[in-house]
């Protein structure tokens, strides 16, 4: 395994600094639209992260983990927000992969995002790992 790694490294060097810049394209109109939509929605979602109603899942989405923390009259609306947010998140990962010419990166981008969403979540928010919810 080690030698394989070395060869890979070698090849990376030969291949030139293709990825050496280390920047992903995230400024396409589609990505901006998704980001803006998610930013606008965040104001509505934030109190529900704080209350523990919503949590960040290990697959880069959000989930209604405890609807009891939401007033009864709002639960229906929160379900809709979760569905919309997850639709946008799925599209975001797909768009970033596509914008960089590598649709096959979608799963990697998703898992990178999943880690970062969770890593940067505020304390008190619920995050999922290994199917279990825990409070940051």
């Amino acid at each position: 395994m080690k030698t394989v790694h070395r060869i890979v490294l070698l090849c990376v060097m030969y291949a030139g600094a293709v990825w050496a810049q280390g920047n992903l394209e995230i400024n396409t109109p589609a990505i901006s639209q998704l980001r803006d939509a998610m930013q606008a929605r965040h104001a509505q979602l934030a109190p529900h992260y704080a209350s523990g109603a919503l949590g960040l899942t290990a697959d880069g989405r959000i989930a209604l983990r405890d609807a009891n923390a939401v007033p009864l009259a709002q639960r229906q609306a929160v379900q809709g927000l979760v569905a919309q947010e997850n639709g946008d998140r799925d599209a975001l990962y797909r768009e970033i992969a596509r914008a960089n010419g590598h649709p096959e990166w979608e799963a990697d981008i998703r898992s990178t995002f999943a880690q970062r969403w969770i890593g940067r979540a505020q304390s008190g928010w619920y995050v999922q790992s290994g199917g279990q919810w825990s409070r940051k």
């Binding site: 209604l64 609807a67 009891n68 939401v70 639960r75």
Partner: peptide, 11 residues
């Protein structure tokens, strides 16, 4: 009443 997940409830 309320189910554990809170999606079937009344008040």
């Amino acid at each position: 009443f309320g189910s554990a997940d809170g999606l079937r409830a009344a008040d």
